[in-house]
Computed example of a mutant assay.
Amino acid sequence: LEDAGGWPERVTTDRFADYATLAARALGDRVKTWTTLNEPWCSAFLGYGSGVHAPGRTDPVAALRAAHHLNLAHGKAVQALRAELPSRARTSITLNIHHVRALTEAAEDLDAVRRIDALANRVFTGPLLEGAYPQDLLQDTAGLTDWSFVQDGDLATIHQPLDFLGVNYYTPTLVSAATGEASHGSDGHGASEHSPWPGADRVAFHRPEGSTTAMGWAVDPSGLYDLLMRLKAEFPAMPLMITENGAAFDDYVNPEGEVSDPDRIAYLHGHLSAVQRAIVAGVDVRGYFLWSLLDNFEWGYGYSKRFGAVYVDYPTGKRIPKASARWYADVARTGTLPDRDGENR
């Protein structure tokens, strides 16, 4: 597919629809809920903008074309799934929606938030959930493209009814207006001399204060709460699912053969508390998935970062449940979240 042009080319949307049809025919008797795409922002902007993910291209126009064609492929896939499974297919898409905050309340910093929010979030939520690309996104990128790759009928195809929206969250994004030399890093998704943000050269990214994970990502559960509240305000009828949330730390097996990971337990406690607060505030959260069950291969880092609740010794394949696995099992089993003092709620 990449040799034929990849996601920047429209034909890829048809191949993805074919794939969805084949998957529905093969698995439709067992699979009830279908997520068409996971983190299309990464596929489009890290794959074609910064080049830190496959296929490694650094072309801002290709990144915008890819984003549109990923949106279109989602719409065609939903149509294909429902055609094959008219009474059984529950459909969704998972977005790594960036919770973008301003360094200060200065107008230029708030405008930096707007710019990145358009490129990170509304480039997907606009057509997917509202049926249109945001006007400010089109204006911000007018110097790069006229968006003529959006053809008649595309937005109607993209704007399919969904059963829920998947949300991946790890850390907030802190931005300001760039001063002097433009600073436009990759907000923790992998450093590169190229920016994944087409036309965002007036934006600077900053590392938030406080503790960080092994990825260098700030630990901030309030970002998840604020994000869920925003989604409720903007799309009140859309059920939500936390499809990824977790943290990588420098885990190791101690002499007793155990893996103690108190930082991960603290991370999960804080973020599950944030989800619980959001539910109490009226957010329709249907479920939560920890990333991840096992230590595994990470796209940009290979086997060097461990997100799992279960430690994997890669040379032997041996699996060792970490302390967080026991803790999280109790949460899942009881449906309660232990307080620091051991009380459940």
Score class of each variant (00 low, 15 high):
252 Y>C: 12
207 R>H: 14
212 T>M: 05
228 L>V: 06
206 H>Q: 10
217 W>F: 13
230 R>E: 15
198 P>R: 04
201 D>S: 15
200 A>I: 04
260 S>W: 01
193 E>W: 01
269 H>L: 12
189 H>Q: 10
240 L>T: 03
218 A>F: 02
236 P>R: 10
221 P>N: 04
226 D>P: 02
237 A>L: 10
270 G>I: 08
245 N>K: 00
222 S>Y: 03
247 A>P: 01
251 D>V: 14
199 G>F: 02
189 H>D: 08
228 L>E: 03
262 P>G: 06
204 A>T: 12
267 Y>P: 02
219 V>W: 09
244 E>I: 07
207 R>I: 13
256 E>Y: 07
249 F>G: 03
227 L>Q: 10
257 G>R: 00
257 G>Q: 05
225 Y>N: 11
208 P>W: 11
245 N>H: 03
266 A>S: 06
230 R>Q: 14
193 E>P: 12
264 R>F: 02
264 R>C: 01
239 P>H: 04
242 I>M: 10
218 A>D: 06
242 I>V: 15
201 D>F: 02
215 M>E: 10
257 G>T: 00
223 G>D: 01
257 G>I: 03
209 E>F: 07
262 P>R: 06
242 I>G: 02
256 E>L: 09
207 R>D: 14
192 S>V: 13
232 K>L: 14
234 E>N: 12
209 E>H: 12
203 V>T: 11
223 G>R: 00
203 V>K: 06
220 D>Y: 08
238 M>P: 01
194 H>F: 15
223 G>W: 01
197 W>S: 04
250 D>E: 15
235 F>K: 08
246 G>I: 14
214 A>H: 11
199 G>T: 08
211 S>I: 10
212 T>N: 08
235 F>M: 08
